[in-house]
Design a protein around this nucleic acid. Structure first.
Lengths: 341, 341
DNA sequence: AGTGGTCGCTAAACTGATTTAGCAGAGCAT
DNA sequence: ATGCTCTGCTAAATCAGTTTAGCGACCACT
């Protein structure tokens, strides 16, 4: 790769100047006293030779690589990871940086390896990303340089970027209240583990808190709360069936994520109920399926692209120490309507 | 990042030997005549200092960075990209390599920039990935070194890795024939653009060809073929409705991808038909939704993880010049049954 | 005439590794 | 005693940049 690239020495020779002069001109150093003509000659020579600096050589001296490590537990299993990466990629490009991506698969050995691999390559900083919003402890090895936590927080008070799940909870509840839903709102997706262990999830508790807070303020109580061991369609399906077997039918269902809502749709369809005429449904995440469902599903979007972007900004431009909360926009879609009759 | 790292000189000093000796011992060079005791001392010193070589310095000399560029058009918009990357990441790790990921967003300027950025960093090779299987022309700039095309082919005969869509077409048709479906099989997702322009898609034509070939051999003809301008749920929905409006009802539907099938499910549900008792459905891709649908959707899986892996193997280990076809396994699920009565 | 300052530029050191060329000493034969 | 080979190791060059220190020419001022 990159055989026959012109070097700085080549440029200097062609311009009839020293490497020093060429280096200074090309780096646009202030305060140098090189003549305008020298500038011309260097630029012309560089242009003509198609000169591009060898960043390995440069970083040996400057200890800057213009490279950021993106270390995450799992990139593949969620379709959100791509957005996180894309946002980071965009922001990095704008700052002339590039991303070295590694995955730990939640395995300590792999993690150790991944971190050594990126540190050996002298990255300028590390974005340590989790695929589920949670609290975690950062491996000591990366604390030697700038670190930003992405979709995670840590007890060490490192800079971090997380979605505003509590705000999303408020948006969801507010949307239903505004439509006139009151005491017939059901919630699907309660989960003790997710709610109580911040190392498993921060989202569950925050979403619940946001919902509760808003409903409390309106003096409205939940009609029912269904617990689910996982947030998968089959659990949403089962929860909805159990919900419908009770005497009081809900006017609206809040699902803790879109996959649960997907299951809920299936159960509602089988029960002959139509969304939103009989029951409104709203949820969290804005998974691609939310827009594909019939009727399309109202949900609050995980702002993953924004978050990835923000992480790079924090890392390179510095900024706030307290967790950076990225708002989750509400996507109003067809699954919302005022309560029936 | 990485302040205070011990250098080779530190190790040599501590071992009471020269940098040369230390370098040779640590690299396990054959044919050197350093004593067993010298080996001991170097290893001990390196261990004690926690020495890790500075790869920027090494690669300046060796012109190897143990880094691969992964350049793709779009990583974010498809949930498959993650699998492609994960496979590549795994294979790279096994070979002590790391991935530098960039995205071109299909924009020529960004592409130019991305390629310069990775070449400046002296990557050992480039994986050039497309998110839709298609034919493309590789930018000349990366032809100076090893290149592998991932999910794409090029007219230049570069090594490439693509899914075996034709084989998938045969699997799908065979599965239906084995269940006893004959002349009442409908196909949803014909698309002239995708079928005729290899720069748009290679999958559509190959899938169609595989299906046709198998049906022809069994002397079976398609009951109907629906064209769709895009392969999205709404188009599958519309196509299925038009299909059901005709007098002859199909016993099975082949959808060109899972999103079309998702739309088909919705239309079938509304028409009061049940899958698979009334109509079998089978498709391509193995999108996560395929397993979430009720009944779960039989489909042929895009082997993205395998493909990512294969690309790295081809790049680093060398190998076949003709396109490497990765099989698409058939996922037999609940949406298949023998034709009704 | 000597001193000091500015201008325009360069030599050489430096980054941290690998690699080439070769040196000192021991052992052996002549 | 000399020459030769082999052993065990090292000095120095090299990779492609950045950075420090400073050199020679010219001018102005006392």
């Amino acid at each position: 790769m990159g055989r026959n690239r012109a070097t700085l020495a080549d440029v200097a020779r062609k311009a009839g100047l020293s490497k020093t002069a060429a280096s200074m001109v090309l780096n646009g150093r202030e305060g140098t006293r090189l003549s305008a003509e020298a500038h011309q000659r260097v630029f012309a020579a560089a242009e003509e030779l198609g000169y591009r600096p060898n960043l390995a050589a440069r970083s040996l001296r400057t200890r800057k690589t213009a490279t950021i490590a993106f270390v995450s537990d799992i990139v593949a299993t969620t379709r959100f990871a791509g957005d996180l990466i894309r946002g980071a990629l965009d922001a990095a490009r704008e700052r002339d940086h590039v991303l070295l991506i590694t995955e730990t698969q939640g395995d300590a050995t792999f993690e150790q390896y991944a971190i050594e691999a990126v540190l050996d390559r002298q990255v300028d900083g590390v974005i340590y990303a989790a695929m589920a919003t949670r609290r975690l402890t950062v491996p000591a090895a990366i604390l030697g340089g700038p670190v930003v936590l992405l979709n995670a927080t840590s007890p060490d008070g490192l800079p971090s970027v997380v979605p505003d799940d509590e705000g999303a909870g408020r948006s969801v509840a507010t949307a239903l209240l505004e439509l006139g839903h009151r005491d017939a709102i059901a919630l699907i997706g309660r989960n003790r583990l997710k709610e109580d262990d911040p190392e498993v999830s921060l989202a569950a508790r925050a979403r619940l808190h946001g919902i509760r807070q808003t409903l409390d303020e309106a003096k409205v109580g939940l009609l029912a709360e269904c617990f689910c061991t996982e947030w998968l369609p089959e659990h949403g399906y089962a929860a909805t069936r159990s919900l419908l077997s009770k005497p009081e039918r809900p006017s609206a269902i809040i699902c803790m994520n879109d996959r649960l809502a997907f299951g809920a749709y299936q159960a509602l369809g089988e029960a002959g109920l139509t969304v939103p005429e009989d029951i409104s449904v709203i949820s969290f995440d804005d998974d691609p399926i939310a827009a594909w469902l019939r009727p399309s599903l109202a949900t609050t979007a995980l702002p993953h692209e924004q978050m990835g972007r923000r992480a790079v900004e924090l890392l390179l431009d510095g900024g706030a120490v307290e967790p950076s909360l990225v708002p989750m926009p509400l996507r109003r879609r067809q699954s919302l309507a005022p309560p029936a009759g």
